[in-house]
């Protein structure tokens, strides 16, 4: 459902107290609500065994996707890890094709071949959806390398979690990206836990942004519960990168309300801790703010809620009624060579 307004960047309308135009708030609200409702539906359908395999939901982290997409261009690339439904929706991949993918249907964004961890879309310049922790860090660096090679001023947003920040691939990538001044925006979504292991149990360095400093990379920590703060940080970073100054690193501090995956009861953290983040829930906070500061009317907000509700119902209908892939699809998309001689016995 590619309804994300392009007005978000031009910012017509009266600026609010934060200097963000109304359209941007509406964009953030709509996208965050779309992600939230999508993930709630995904969990529900997982419970009904309509969705199988691993499934990592983005609930709680929506402001990160919102603040990225209100800044970057369609021509910029994004690559991220396996908690990726929200980023994909932010790119403009429709809830229909995303839900159909979770259902393993032929109409899914990757024809039912990727599932929850692998939505990729060339049209949206969305490079995935990678299931190997940290593998996308050099890949995003290479996507940025290609942009520089081709002489564009596009950048590649290369996202990973706090767990991946401990992989060697991060250091190799940071080092080469800085040496070669590649247009890459590294973002660690620090949600506090690598599966069940808290950040402070994985390293002596718990302020992850500092890892960029050892490569002299401009690095900062950002409040990931605030789309405004994310937007502003991305704006600074993107300007630095597009000016040809090389990479930038943001540690965006966020939180996932649910477990690592659907099978994780998350016993490694307290209810109070979860509640402390839910008290700052970006989807609720932005609604309250828009009403309090008269950025939008109740009617306008309700219209977005109604629209998302219908969108999700349509997505489920679409996924339910779409065909499964034909077994012959097993042998497609393994090689570009059309007559590749597979060993069949």
């Amino acid at each position: 459902m590619n309804t994300v307004v392009d007005k978000k960047k031009t910012g017509k309308g009266n600026p609010t107290s934060d200097g963000h135009p109304k359209e941007r708030y509406l964009f953030w609200f709509e996208l965050m609500l779309r992600i939230r409702r999508f993930e709630e539906k995904a969990l529900m359908m997982y419970g009904q065994q309509k969705i199988r395999g691993f499934c990592h939901v983005y609930i709680g982290q929506e402001a990160v996707a919102a603040g990225i997409e209100s800044v970057i261009r369609r021509e910029d690339g994004i690559v991220t890890a396996y908690r990726q439904h929200g980023i994909a929706l932010g790119r403009g991949i429709s809830a229909k094709s995303a839900m159909a993918e979770l259902y393993g249907k032929a109409t899914g964004v990757v024809k039912g071949k990727g599932g929850s961890m692998h939505f990729l879309s060339a049209e949206h310049k969305y490079f995935g959806g990678n299931g190997i922790v940290g593998a996308q860090i050099p890949i995003g660096t290479g996507i940025a390398f290609a942009e520089k090679y081709k002489g564009t001023d596009n950048l590649c947003v290369t996202m990973f979690g706090d767990g991946a920040a401990r992989q060697g691939a991060l250091h190799e990538s940071f080092n080469m990206a800085m040496s070669w001044k590649l247009p890459v925006l590294y973002i660690v979504e620090n949600n506090g836990y690598a599966m069940g292991t808290s950040v402070n149990r994985t390293s002596n360095v718990v302020e992850l942004y500092k890892m960029g400093l050892s490569y002299d990379m401009p690095s900062e920590a950002v409040d990931g519960m605030s789309p405004e703060a994310v937007h502003e940080a991305i704006t600074r970073a993107a300007a630095h990168i597009r000016a040809g100054n090389g990479p930038y690193f943001l540690e965006i501090r966020t939180y996932r309300y649910k477990g690592h995956s659907v099978s994780d009861p998350a016993k490694y953290r307290t209810k109070e801790e979860v509640q402390s983040y839910q008290d700052r829930d970006p989807v609720k906070m932005i609604e309250v703010k828009m009403l309090d500061e008269k950025i939008a009317t109740e009617k306008e907000i309700q219209a977005i809620k109604d629209k998302i509700k219908i969108e999700m119902e349509e997505a489920i209908d679409f996924a339910e009624n779409s065909p499964l892939p034909h077994p012959d699809e097993l042998y497609t998309d393994n090689y570009m060579q059309k007559d590749y001689p597979f060993i069949m016995d």
């Binding site: 050099p138 290479g142 290609a146 090679y149 060697g168 190799e172």
Partner: peptide, 26 residues
């Protein structure tokens, strides 16, 4: 130097940069 590129000793990193570059048209 744009097209013949010395790397640091970082096989995982530069192989991955190659993969990303290939996915993005090179």
């Amino acid at each position: 130097a744009k097209r013949v590129i010395d790397t640091p000793i970082a096989e995982l990193g530069f192989a991955g940069i190659g993969v990303g570059a290939a996915m993005n048209g090179l």
